[in-house]
């Protein structure tokens, strides 16, 4: 896999507000190789949206790969990679796998 130039990755995640959802999502982001640099979140009690700025821990980490791991979580409704390319819409409908 080709290393990517390092810079901050910006992602947006919409999720259902369930106990542990935030911890779970941030855990996946970090375990899969991204350090959290900043975070914004809003919620109406049922649903939440957060945008994250992330620094990959090495040049081989790809945000798309990590986002697919995030999308597998039961609470996650959609994920969008804001930095590059189109929204990863196809990821959302396989979150149940």
């Amino acid at each position: 896999m080709t290393p990517k130039a390092q810079g901050l990755e910006h992602i947006r995640i919409e999720f259902r507000c369930a106990e542990g959802a935030l911890r779970r999502i941030l855990g996946v982001v970090e375990t899969r190789g991204f350090a959290l640099r900043s975070m914004q979140m809003g919620s109406n009690g049922d649903h939440a949206v957060m945008t994250l700025a992330l620094a990959p821990i090495d040049p081989f980490r790809r945000a798309e790969t990590m986002l697919r791991q995030v999308a597998r979580l039961q609470e996650v409704e959609s994920t969008i990679h804001l930095t590059n390319g189109p929204p990863v819409a196809e990821v959302t409908n396989v979150a149940i796998a």
Binding site: M1, E64, T65, R68, Q69, A71, R72, E90, V91, V94, A97
Partner: peptide
């Protein structure tokens, strides 16, 4: 694979059938 997260995770898939 049934899991989209496995496709292209470690090796590029020329055809990724999910």
């Amino acid at each position: 694979d049934v899991d989209a997260a496995e496709l292209g995770k470690l090796r590029f898939a020329h055809a990724a059938v999910c």
